[in-house]
Design a protein around this nucleic acid. Structure first.
Lengths: 108, 108
DNA sequence: GTCCACTATCTAGTGGTACCGTGTACCGGT
DNA sequence: ACCGGTACACGGTACCACTAGATAGTGGAC
């Protein structure tokens, strides 16, 4: 599946938040996780800009720790605001995706 | 449900295309239809910009016809390119929404 | 007979978000 | 010594929904 970029607008950030919420992790690993989830074209640069935004908006806490196989990693965890934001995101997602599926099935 | 705007990026155009594909219709009516479908905050201006884009990209045909209750209406119908685009849109939607649901259910 | 609400379209400008390309840097194997 | 994998950062671009305002036809309330 190619060129999903426009459709990911507004949802990719929530996906990143969900991944961080599942377990403390870092940018490079989040990118690999998204790739294996089926978002094959998502690259590091995209994820880092999202992480910067999340941190700026006070939804995550960051901690730099050394790695044994490369440069230091910047680990992220959700804080309370992040968990609230994530819950809101999923509520919106359920609402929107249900409405779109309705339209698709020709519900009137 | 409020402020769905970012989540609608990339999908609203497909929704408009689907509505036009179901029956020949015009901007104002499409807006009302979207509102009753649950996209309550979508306004005329947004829909008109989408319609202009669809026409510019050669996905729809337009025909202006008089109305009995107001100014003339501009009716839109899908052409072949529009129908192909719509099919692609739904394929992408199914792919993306399935992946996101997977992530949400904690599938790993 | 004037105002107002509803119907109907159009457009220039704004802001948010994913993406591109590139640079920097650490590490291990050959 | 070099190269590929790991890891982060950042300036610039493109796309798309939204804002806010202008224009205009119809019909009802007063």
């Amino acid at each position: 599946m190619e060129d999903l970029t426009e459709m990911l607008k507004g949802t990719l950030e929530g996906c990143v938040l969900q991944i961080i919420g599942t377990e403390e992790t870092y940018g490079y690993a989040i990118t690999r996780r998204l790739n294996e989830l089926g978002f094959a074209d998502v690259v590091e640069g995209t994820v880092y800009t999202i992480l910067v935004r999340l941190e700026k908006n006070g939804l995550v806490e960051a901690a730099k720790r050394p790695s044994e196989v490369g440069p230091p990693r910047k680990f992220y965890t959700l804080n309370d605001a992040g968990r609230r934001h994530l819950a809101t995101f999923w509520a919106k997602w359920e609402y929107v995706s249900a409405r779109i599926d309705e339209l698709k099935e020709g519900g009137r």
